[in-house]
Design a protein around this nucleic acid. Structure first.
Lengths: 145, 145
DNA sequence: TCAAATTAAATTGTGTACAATCAAATCACA
DNA sequence: TGTGATTTGATTGTACACAATTTAATTTGA
């Protein structure tokens, strides 16, 4: 056991980073049936909840900037799940909203969380603690920059 | 409070994904002084520990495949931190090893974990629990696929 | 022993991510 | 009211990630 902070095994950041990628890989299979990538699925989840959001609001919800969202939203529009239109009151904004198809996709998506829950080895308590700790970290890292 | 598993706030995967990205962003500043990206830093950490690894071994340590590692290693080689050479006993393998410069970089890198530790709001106990839970998740997600 | 299976990297193609910059629209206030 | 600052998306350039395929080298078994 060695306390050198430059060892990979002593890094907290590494398992977070590696877990995030493994989770995205695990989502690949259930999401491929919906023709969605993981990030596209996150955007759809926000819209299933609210139906209509500006690009800026989506970025705030998902901690993503327009450089990521703009091309991604164009792909979702090409698939027919959303539409993008300039807001008439403020022409700087683009409003993203669900199409009928995008809304209907929600029902097919209900299988996804079930599929993923089956892959997790965590107890309810472990999952809750993990959730709280991650949000604590997330708020601090994002808040003060 | 709503238990719908399709709500973003009820997802455990999302804070993991968002945290991972915020952490990489937070590393940007200290690592820019070493002319390294976060993933390049992970590779260097493995080599500072072992000095010599094949591409396959690096991939196993970091959960990365050759499609990611090959171009990244070429960049590290161009910077002069590593060399890549075919293994003579088994020509299928490429051995990656530190140059003198790459080894010397380790001393400059000691500031990085200090800088990052200062940004974390977690207690020692929270960090340890987080670490253990993430590795539990990581091993299961990576092991059975 | 030699062809089939396996292994290791590299390549190709798609899709994020984000820093930095730009351009257009709106706002603020002198 | 008009101009400088701000806000919002889009664009550009760089750097991962990974699935799928390819190529070359090694191993295995009939």
């Amino acid at each position: 056991m060695c306390g050198d902070p430059l060892l990979l095994k002593n890094q907290l950041c590494f398992p977070i980073y590696a877990c995030a990628r493994e989770i995205i890989k695990a989502y690949h299979e259930p999401l491929s049936k919906l023709d969605l990538t993981y990030t596209q699925y996150l955007v759809m989840m926000v819209l299933w909840e609210e139906r209509e959001k500006s690009v800026r609001e989506l970025g705030e919800c998902l901690y993503l900037d327009s450089g990521t969202l703009t091309p991604l939203l164009k792909k979702l529009e090409a698939k027919g799940y959303i539409v993008r239109e300039r807001c008439t009151e403020d022409e700087r904004c683009v409003i993203v909203s669900l199409t009928t198809e995008g809304d209907a996709l929600r029902e097919k998506a209900r299988a996804v969380p079930r599929c993923m829950a089956a892959k997790s080895p965590l107890t309810q308590e472990e999952a809750e603690t993990l959730y709280k700790t991650l949000y604590k970290l997330l708020h601090v890292l994002h808040g003060e920059s």
